[in-house]
């Protein structure tokens, strides 16, 4: 190589060439990236029928639409007006309760399935190669197919109603949680696992006593997080007929019952926020109180 024998002047020249090379390569990458981005942008604009004119024409529509949904609440008799706005509060609350219950039952069922197979889906724990493969692929499939697609299919099979929604939520949750649980399992301390195997415990017992106590607090935390997500999901599944408040929401949208739209959306927002807050407190409690309680 020339570097070893190069004098001072050569070193500068060498640096210059290298620097130029590097810059050229960087410029090339940047240019290529920009070109690809421009192509994607152009193609998306065409395929996506992006039309600034239409958007501009639509903006007043959107504002008008939002404006119409706002309830009329006068300063003179606000309570009466709010009562009128939420004229069907009894029905909506019941539907909202159904929605939360759908999220609850769906999360629980999904967690159960994930719990059952997550040990198979962990590379360090799987008893056999084929069960590992099967669990991994199963979870992958369950979480990649959107909930709404499952819901469409189940509504077709079981008819409209919350059961289809619960099934859809359960399957999707099983996939999402299964992957997370398996990752937690793969970080479990291997020493107790060794000890239990050496004591003659079977695979199931080893999972129960050496792995589960280590991972359970994490599982619960992920489960609660999933519950929050699932209540949101449950509130829209009704759009395809899978029960809950979403069905009512879609109905009032299509019937142009404007103030009802805002009433229901606000109800969903409040419920979801309350559940988020409650779950966050539970999760913090779980982390702070330590896993001692969770395991005994």
């Amino acid at each position: 190589m020339a570097i070893a024998v190069a004098g001072g002047g050569d070193a500068v020249a060498l640096f210059e060439t290298r620097h130029r090379d590097l810059r050229r390569r960087k410029a090339l990458t940047t240019g290529l990236g920009a070109l690809l981005f421009a192509l994607a942008f152009g193609a998306s604009a065409i395929v996506g029928e992006v039309d600034p004119g239409r958007f501009a024409a639509g903006v007043p529509n959107i504002l008008d639409y939002v404006h119409r949904t706002l309830p009329e609440i006068s300063a003179r008799q606000p309570l009466t007006d709010i009562g009128e706005w939420y004229w069907a509060i009894d029905i909506w609350l019941l539907l909202m309760l159904d929605t939360v219950l759908m999220g609850f039952v769906g999360t629980l069922a999904g967690t159960a399935v994930a719990l059952l197979f997550c040990f198979h889906a962990a590379a360090n724990l799987a008893p056999t190669r084929w069960s590992f493969w099967l669990a991994r692929r199963g979870f992958e499939f369950a979480r990649t197919v959107p909930e709404l697609v499952f819901a469409l299919i189940f509504v077709f099979a079981f008819g409209p109603g919350p059961f289809a929604g619960v099934l859809a939520i359960a399957i999707h949750s099983a996939g999402a949680l299964g992957k997370l649980f398996a990752e937690v399992n793969e970080n479990a301390d291997p020493r107790p696992i060794d000890a239990l195997a050496a004591a003659g415990a079977g695979w199931t017992e080893t999972m129960r006593f050496a792995v589960l106590p280590q991972v359970l607090p994490n599982f619960l935390s992920y489960g609660l997080l999933r519950f929050e997500i699932n209540v949101r999901a449950a509130s829209v599944l009704g759009i395809v007929g899978a029960g809950g408040i979403g069905e009512e929401l879609y109905l009032v949208v299509r019937r142009f019952l404007y103030s009802d739209i805002s009433a229901i959306v606000l109800l969903i927002l409040i419920t979801v926020s309350l559940i988020d807050m409650g779950c966050e407190r539970l999760r913090h409690g779980l982390i702070e109180a330590g896993p001692a309680r969770a395991t005994r």
Binding site: D51, I62, A233, I239, I268, L269, V272
Partner: peptide
């Protein structure tokens, strides 16, 4: 806090059916 599917319903009503409503 409002799911994109609900926004989609709103935008379909406002700018009509099609991918543009989806983008928004």
């Amino acid at each position: 806090g409002i799911d994109s599917l609900i926004w989609a319903i709103v935008f379909v009503a406002a700018v009509g059916m099609g991918p543009f409503a989806g983008i928004l």
